[in-house]
Amino acid sequence: MLVPKYGRVVAFEGYELTNNNARIKATEQRIAQLERAAEVETSKREVFEGCTIVENTEENRLQIIFDGKPAPEVRAILKSHAFKWAPSQGAWQRQLTNAARYAGQQVERQLKEVIG
């Protein structure tokens, strides 16, 4: 933006150009991360009969799918680990991150204790 300042025309203010290289580098790293994530395929594992954990890379979600409606104590475990019910997917899910993978392991461990 051309702004007259002190008798001269300034194309950009100093603060507008600050940190450009860091922004470029962060954007390039994010693009590389998204490209790596796109290469990973969806995986499924059955925790026990009637419960499956899915790493859905197309939706970028970690999903826990039950055959029917889970018991209140199972829903409490899922909610305590930030899983939300998604009626459109028919699954309890959260964004697929390393933290979600860890939470999925914790839920799996707790479900095995509760259900047996």
Rank of each mutant, 00 (worst) to 15 (best):
R45Y: 08
L78H: 02
Q33M: 04
I64K: 05
V10P: 06
Q29M: 10
A100D: 02
A11M: 11
R61E: 08
S80P: 01
P72M: 09
Q63Y: 04
P72C: 06
Y102C: 10
Y15M: 00
K79N: 01
G104W: 10
V10K: 11
R94H: 09
I65F: 04
K25S: 15
E59N: 09
F66A: 05
Y102A: 14
A37E: 08
T97W: 03
A76Y: 12
E46M: 14
R45V: 12
E39P: 14
C51D: 01
P4N: 07
L34S: 01
T52G: 08
I65P: 05
K5T: 09
E35L: 13
R8P: 03
A99Y: 06
L34V: 12
E35V: 13
V54P: 02
E108C: 02
L78Q: 06
K44Y: 03
E28H: 09
W92S: 11
N21I: 15
T52R: 03
A91T: 12
V9A: 07
H81Q: 04
P87M: 09
N98C: 11
G50D: 08
A38C: 01
L2N: 06
A86F: 00
L96P: 13
G7L: 01
T18R: 12
E73N: 15
L78K: 10
K84I: 11
T27P: 06
R30E: 11
L2A: 01
I65Y: 11
R8I: 03
K44W: 08
R30N: 03
Q33P: 06
T97K: 00
F12M: 14
K69C: 08
N98H: 07
G50Q: 10
L96N: 11
T18W: 07
T27S: 12
P70G: 05
E58K: 06
A38T: 03
A38F: 13
N56Q: 00
M1Q: 11
G7T: 09
M1I: 07
E73Y: 06
E16W: 02
A26T: 08
V40H: 08
P4G: 02
L111Y: 05
G50C: 03
F83I: 02
T27I: 12
V114W: 07
P4R: 15
N56F: 01
W85A: 05
L2Y: 09
L111I: 14
R94P: 00
R23L: 08
K44L: 00
K79P: 14
R8Q: 01
W92V: 07
L2G: 00
F83V: 13
V40I: 02
E41Y: 07
E49M: 09
V40R: 09
R61L: 07
F12Q: 15
F48V: 11
I115Q: 06
W92M: 13
Q33H: 00
K44M: 12
F48K: 05
P87W: 07
G90N: 10
L111V: 02
Q93K: 08
